[in-house]
Design a protein around this nucleic acid. Sequence first.
DNA 1: ACACTGACCTGCGAGC
DNA 2: TGCTCGCAGGTCAGTG
Length: 268
Amino acid sequence: MPELPEVETVLRTLEAQIKGLCIEEVVIQYAKTVEGDAQEFVQQLQGQTFQEFMRRGKYLLFVMDSVVLVSHLRMEGRYRLLSHGEKPPRHTHVIFALSDGRDLCYVDSRKFGRMYVTGKDIDLEHFHDLGPEPFADSFTASYVYAEAKKRKTALKTLLLDQGFIAGIGNIYADEILSACGLRPGRSCQRITHRDAEAIVQNTRQILSEAIRQGGTTIHTFSPEEGVTGLFQLSVMVHGKKACGRCGNSVHMRRIGGRSSYYCPVCQK
DNA sequence: ACACTGACCTGCGAGC
DNA sequence: TGCTCGCAGGTCAGTG
């Protein structure tokens, strides 16, 4: 379940590994992974060099010479770099043969991830109608308060809305609300200025700590790539039986179609 | 216009 | 042991 910290970790890992390398060949093994025309995708990428590595929300953006390769990992997507002659792992859907002889494989057991090629003139601000980045200046308490007051949904649903804030997924939404002492099912309408301030501060604190620790999910990265995802040790409520703060039992209920974990003692 | 639901997929674990 | 079933969740299209 790659969320912002996992995507950021993937990006930094890949940047250190493949920046400046050229794509010599592209092989698509599962057509639906690539949006649009497969032939065109291949033609646009062959001969292009990885120049810059960017992220917007949960989207990876690989800036090449004359195009941008956009990739979304959805739930299980990951990249693996194979040394020359190594066999691609199971569920490999796209292979990029690189100029140093290695293969960059896109691996996705659930086939949910998507990628496409676009021009370099992309508008990052309005990219996929995403809201502000959590670390952007525009993500303020007054923004959170005003957006919450517009809606009739639960706070959890607000945090998961990529148009409100980009990059938060199910795990971090639960963790942020736990840190704020707010129940995921609490109505957006009941938000206070103090709550909004807590959401901004805890969102930034939790995401930056997760990035520092290399993300949460172990599935996304394999140990041989040197990235293990230590943030899973810092999880307080999501998927837990006992609250990491007070030790009382964690409750689970579905909010907006997603499993939501919270501590009824710590969260009001 | 907003809010909710189901589809997309496969692996895994629970229960029989 | 081996089967079925439900769940996992990011995004978007479709529905109310």
